[in-house]
Simulated scan of single mutants.
Amino acid sequence: MSIGNSPEDDRPSIGRVLQQARLAASLTVDQVSTATRVRIPIVHAIEQDDFSRCGGDVYARGHIRTLARAVGTDPEPLVAQYDAEHGGRPAPTPAAPLFEAERIRSDPRRPNWTAAMVAAIVAVIGFVGFTFFKGGDEPATAGRVAEGPTSDKIAPKPSASKPADPKPAPTESAIAAAPLDKVTVKLSATHGRSWISAKDHNGRSLFDGTLEQGDSKTFQDKERVDLVLGNAGSIELFVNGKKVDDRFQPGQVERLSYTKGDPEVG
């Protein structure tokens, strides 16, 4: 190493890290492109540290994150390395300042004595009327208080109702039951993490990402579920409520398809 070089100068390039991780996961460029929808020429260019085909820094960062997740490596150090090598992340645009509208102050006006006199007369008439009606209602009110209901009134007996039958606890077979009109696929990463891709019968993506150890995902479709498992040996597979006993090897890439009549590999 030459004098004055920092440790960052000896670290592998972004493209080299992504390529090594892809080879370690036993994935081809075509498989990564299919799973991530990043075109094959762009995948090749990024692995050669050529980001000119990404369409800008924002798209380059997005492609780095997508490819890193697909091959099972942490994208954040690679994005930070990209920012350091390409002038850093742009500073966020400050929010526009908010201006409080000036309150409109009304000009002082002379007091309106006519309106004040009318208001005073209305208040006096209202007070007199209220006093008159209140005085006439007092005896009746007193009578109602004196003749009010006593506290020893017999409360109605609550009607006896038949206790509801306890609901039976769901059994393990009921929980594992899958609807007969759909295909149900459950994946559990029991022996490590694995990159997976799941699509419905129309080719629409149901999930595309990494399943960490201990995580589970369940997918349903009315006709078919297509799977790509990047590290099949770490996956425990259930199809339509039944465990699939195929023994996949660690690091093995498997393409599977299941319908309502399975668990047989399509």
Rank of each mutant, 00 (worst) to 15 (best):
residue 157 K to Q: 14
residue 152 D to H: 11
residue 190 T to A: 08
residue 230 G to L: 02
residue 84 A to Y: 12
residue 207 F to K: 02
residue 206 L to I: 06
residue 261 G to R: 11
residue 237 L to N: 00
residue 144 R to E: 02
residue 194 S to L: 05
residue 214 G to M: 08
residue 37 R to N: 12
residue 66 T to C: 08
residue 21 A to P: 08
residue 93 T to Q: 12
residue 136 G to A: 15
residue 55 G to D: 00
residue 92 P to E: 10
residue 119 A to E: 08
residue 110 R to C: 08
residue 13 S to K: 10
residue 248 F to M: 02
residue 253 V to L: 12
residue 214 G to L: 07
residue 20 Q to F: 12
residue 90 P to A: 06
residue 106 S to W: 13
residue 229 L to K: 01
residue 207 F to P: 00
residue 225 V to F: 02
residue 46 I to Y: 02
residue 145 V to M: 06
residue 262 D to K: 01
residue 160 A to D: 13
residue 177 A to I: 00
residue 14 I to P: 03
residue 75 P to C: 03
residue 85 E to G: 14
residue 58 V to K: 15
residue 196 I to R: 00
residue 94 P to A: 02
residue 4 G to R: 04
residue 51 F to M: 07
residue 31 Q to N: 05
residue 106 S to A: 15
residue 6 S to Y: 14
residue 201 H to R: 09
residue 76 E to A: 10
residue 50 D to H: 09
residue 248 F to C: 02
residue 104 I to L: 13
residue 3 I to N: 15
residue 26 S to R: 14
residue 12 P to M: 11
residue 111 P to G: 05
residue 253 V to Q: 08
residue 183 V to L: 03
residue 116 A to G: 15
residue 206 L to Y: 07
residue 47 E to C: 01
residue 132 F to W: 15
residue 243 K to D: 01
residue 71 V to C: 03
residue 41 P to H: 11
residue 203 G to T: 02
